[in-house]
Design a protein around this nucleic acid. Sequence first.
DNA 1: TATTGTTATACTCTATAACTATA
DNA 2: TATAGTTATAGAGTATAACAATA
Lengths: 152, 152
Amino acid sequence: MDDTSGKRLRSFQRALPISLLRAREASMRRFKKHVESYDLTLQQWRVIRALADESPLGSKALSDRCVIMAPSLSRIFRTLKNKGLIHAVKTDDRRERSVALSDNGHQIFKEISVKSEAIYRDIESRFGAKNMAELLDLLEQLREAADSTSET
Amino acid sequence: MDDTSGKRLRSFQRALPISLLRAREASMRRFKKHVESYDLTLQQWRVIRALADESPLGSKALSDRCVIMAPSLSRIFRTLKNKGLIHAVKTDDRRERSVALSDNGHQIFKEISVKSEAIYRDIESRFGAKNMAELLDLLEQLREAADSTSET
DNA sequence: TATTGTTATACTCTATAACTATA
DNA sequence: TATAGTTATAGAGTATAACAATA
């Protein structure tokens, strides 16, 4: 990008929300293509990742972790069940309708993860491992700071 | 957030795309409510901000800066024109249909900016000014790193 | 021929409200 | 009464392709 317009441009480009959006957009581009080549949306993939990390999980936990609204999750559950990637799991609280990864779900998670990790490491190698660790720390702190203000 | 599940949880929560998404979601919450109270969507607001920074701009420049697809921009132009916030501007290249902020557009930009800046400073005061500057730098570097890989 | 932008289309996501079932 | 989740619905965004006008 050229920077001929100088300061005026900078004030917009350095705004926090747009910076987060553009960084995300740039870093997601390759992940997105990769995941979509498996006929999964990014949101579906986030749900699969979260479940690979911890299963079973209910709608509410997944909604928080994946930043997906409950109605969207209902649809995603239906889709992933139809694909045989997740299945219902009974829990003590019978209001909850928790789900867990199926064997097929675990398999596709592993399959997609291979290239996904490679893409990540490629970005990290250009960005710098130290920078990456620092960025992830700052993002977590930012989230806490922003959450604490919105509670008032 | 509790961290009882430890390492397994961490691997998902520390993933770059989800970290960017959650940080953005948390830091945007209050901006969003504020902007929407003026009957503007966040995308419309991004266009207004970009035009307040530099006018006139064509569809392509705005698409890059605001991370909005061209067809969405066409619709946003129509909406903002109907609201009297932007107007068409003729340029040398007659393919371009550049737009600029109207007087009303400048006024609403200033009006919204007051509280928007206050929200920003509130978040910054909790997050730390040094952290904020560091984060913005890292986000820019990340974007460059990710862009350079996707060009291959 | 390539580029800028609009329109058409199909799909997905957001966000709210109304509802069911369970606690 | 409160909570977990589904369904319905309206609006907005994503993404691609087809198109018009201009370079």
